[in-house]
Simulated assay, not measured.
Amino acid sequence: MHGDSLKLLSKMNPECIDMVFADPPYFLSNDGITCNSGRMVSVNKGEWDKIGNNSPNVEEKHRFNRKWIKLCKRILKPNGSIWISGTLHNIYSIGMALEQEGFKIINNITWQKTNPPPNLACRCFTHSTETILWAQKADKKAHHYFNYELMKEQNGGKQMKDVWLGSLTKPSEKKAGKHPTQKPEYLLERIVQASTKENDIILDPFCGSGTTGVVAKRLGRRFIGIDTEEEYLTICKKRLETESNGEKEL
């Protein structure tokens, strides 16, 4: 769906979604620089990474996070769960917003990147991790689904830990077009397999280039994606068509 997540989420039926994966704006677009493929590039992502025409202050960011998280709670089934990805720029607000809006955090996953971009300023440690919070409704009657046995099997017969090691998104996953914060498919495969069953409905309110949708389709789940940028939805559709046609990404 093309549009504002806040508006579209408010129109959805309550308690209709099994799982939400959200990779919300990090609000990094502050005219700074970073490194991409060995080149110095702007950190600016686009107008969608701002509130209004300016980078937001702390209060504005937190209000935004509380709004969309509250709307996601309304549409989640009683036993549903939500996953939210972020960095130090927004994850602390996300964590507080989850608790304020009636969620209980199940896990704090650390995604450690094996090939992070170098730190150009050389005044701090290289930023090589992102945090993914997994939460359920803070209700004693809520019982989130967790495929413990599959996760243990994928981890060589041992309990899977909350630190996940892996590379950044492969170039082959960006053949349909590039998105500045595209998540790798293996990351979403683990999340979807761990917390949903076949035919469950997964919602991504900031779906970007559609990694959540591609993985949902591959694993026999149903998918709803929302984004404000038509350009990214076009990429998402191309990737879903490729997945439907059984074309393998190398």
Score class of each variant (00 low, 15 high):
M1R: 06
G3L: 10
D4G: 14
S10E: 14
K11A: 07
E15K: 01
P24S: 02
Y26R: 13
F27V: 08
S29R: 15
N30E: 09
D31V: 07
T34R: 14
T34A: 11
N36F: 14
N44V: 03
G46A: 05
D49F: 03
G52E: 08
N53E: 15
P56T: 07
E59H: 05
E59P: 04
E59L: 06
K67S: 04
W68I: 15
C72F: 03
K77Q: 12
K77E: 11
G80S: 04
W83L: 04
T87D: 11
Y92F: 02
S93M: 08
L98D: 09
Q100K: 13
Q100C: 10
Q100I: 12
I106L: 04
N107S: 10
N108W: 03
I109N: 04
K113T: 01
K113I: 04
P116Q: 05
C122A: 08
F125T: 10
T126F: 10
S128N: 12
E130C: 01
I132G: 06
W134E: 10
W134N: 07
A142G: 08
N147P: 09
E153A: 14
Q159F: 13
M160W: 14
M160Q: 12
M160Y: 14
K161S: 04
W164E: 03
S167D: 02
K170F: 02
S172W: 00
E173N: 12
G177P: 09
K178W: 15
P180I: 03
T181A: 02
P184A: 09
Y186L: 00
L187F: 09
I191Y: 04
V192C: 12
A194L: 05
L203K: 08
L203D: 00
D204N: 01
P205L: 02
L219T: 00
L219M: 10
F223H: 06
I224Y: 13
I226K: 01
I226H: 06
D227W: 15
E230V: 15
E230K: 06
T234R: 13
K238P: 05
L240A: 13
T242G: 07
E243D: 09
S244F: 08
S244A: 15
N245K: 07
G246T: 10
E247G: 10
E249I: 13
E249P: 14
